[in-house]
Design a protein around this nucleic acid. Structure first.
Length: 376
RNA sequence: GUGCGAUUAGUUCAGUUGGUAGAGCACCAGAUUGUGGUUCUGGGUGUCAUCGGUUCGAGCCCGAUAUCGCACC
């Protein structure tokens, strides 16, 4: 995988570039829709491509390993073929899910033992088998196995957690270099910089990650309970420590405002469940602010969902209709909202890219943040 | 027509020996950040069918009326 940096904002750390993969190019900054178990919930690939204009989507190793399982994925010829998606895929290692989903987990130097949230069965992720698993899934970009440290962890806890993550990373990197892709196209991996909100640990984590000489780097362990100021400060600290000519991925973030703030600080890639999960529950992000479609005030508002929206659905259905679908518990409500929100997120990063190229990103960002954070 | 039972929040219902009502769902809001199609938080929105009686005090006891259900003729 190759990354070409095409332009850097003269007034901030914002930048744009192109990520080249065997499944196509990705223009950065980019937002990557989350497709945990092999589907971006409620959205057709046709709409992901043509309407939302998604350039890459995510899959999740924890979920896919548990179901459908590696035998099925291998027999299918990898996740791309299995879910019929011919553009790039990034898989998260499952470290975060072990942290957030598993009722029982035990982290040791060996790896993490956990029990399945589906049937309670016991499993072990090691850095080595995690590489093998992500090879079988066949993601273009794999993520290193890490421990996602809680935002309110003590320095002592974060210290130990980082030692674990560093040890796992070295083994992950070794196994990665010893193995080959299974399906004829290339795969790369990104180390994940942890260290909680502690500058000394973040610095150490970044320097250690960079030693791996990987194709890109991720910042993890943010938006997990710390304040937004701490999140922005951590991004500001970490980005300059990463190679300029490699993409930077802020994992799991975030709100539209979070994304603009992070772009300004030098981040290139994002993913977040917010547009889809919150969308399924009635929350719409737009250029004019945030709407809760369940609110009674939309019941007789027959104007189009989003006059400035980038999506087909924005101009073909009314607010009142979408409100009704949510109240009625119709799955179509979740589909429309997911499509709208993803289209907005992709539109947002596309506009950011345009303004970075035009050289007026900072001014545009300032007025945009104010506008999109309003409550409608 | 007779007998029995029921009537309390939008709805389904609870409500102690009589001390001016409460739950689930719905509803009205808020939260949700590397996704279990969720989950969490806050809010009671009421002429206790109606009228009258007993009582210091009635959702509760008594009478009448209305409506619904069941049984019998």
């Amino acid at each position: 995988m190759k990354f070409t940096l095409s332009c850097v904002d003269p007034h901030s750390s914002a930048r744009c570039g192109t990520l080249h993969t065997d499944h196509g190019d990705i223009q950065t900054p980019i937002f990557m829709p989350v497709g945990t178990v092999g589907s971006v919930k409620g959205v057709y690939h046709r709409d992901l491509k043509e309407d939302i204009k998604a350039e890459i989507i995510l899959g999740n190793t924890y979920h896919l390993y548990l179901r459908p399982g590696l035998d099925t994925l291998k027999a299918a010829g990898g996740l791309h073929k299995f879910e019929s998606w011919d553009r790039p895929i990034l898989t998260d290692s499952g470290g975060f899910q072990v942290f957030s989903l598993s009722p029982i987990r035990k982290l040791t130097a060996e790896g993490c033992r956990f029990s399945s949230h589906i049937d309670g069965s016991k499993h072990l992720f090691t850095p080595e088998n995690n590489v093998d698993t992500q090879r079988i899934i066949g993601a273009d970009i794999m993520m290193a196995l890490d421990e996602c440290c809680p935002g309110d962890a003590s320095h002592d806890y974060a210290r130990k957690s980082l030692d674990l993550t560093k040890g796992w990373l070295e083994r992950f990197d070794k196994r990665f270099r010893e193995t080959e892709p299974l399906y004829g196209y290339s795969q790369c991996y990104f180390p994940i910089v942890q260290g909680c909100v502690y500058p000394d640990l973040r610095r150490e984590a970044a320097e250690h990650a960079v030693q791996m000489g990987a194709d890109g780097y991720a910042i993890g362990g943010l938006a997990v309970g710390e304040s937004s100021e701490q999140m922005y400060e951590t991004i500001e600290l970490v980005c300059p420590l990463l190679p300029k000519d490699k993409p930077r991925y802020l994992m799991g973030v975030g709100t539209p405002v979070n994304i603009l703030e992070a772009i300004e600080r030098g981040v290139d890639m994002f993913d977040c469940v917010m547009p889809t999960r919150n969308g399924r529950n009635g929350m719409l992000f737009t250029w004019d602010g945030i709407m809760n479609m369940r609110n009674a005030k939309w019941a007789e508002d027959f104007s189009e969902i989003d006059p400035l929206g980038a999506s087909f659905v924005d101009h073909n259905y009314s607010k009142a209709y979408l409100h009704h679908l949510f109240k009625a518990g119709e799955m179509f409500a979740a589909m429309l909202a997911s499509e709208h929100n993803l289209a907005f997120y992709l539109d947002l990063v596309r506009e950011a890219r345009k303004h970075i190229q035009a050289g007026d990103f900072a001014a545009w960002k300032k007025q945009t943040v104010e506008r999109i954070s309003r409550r409608m």
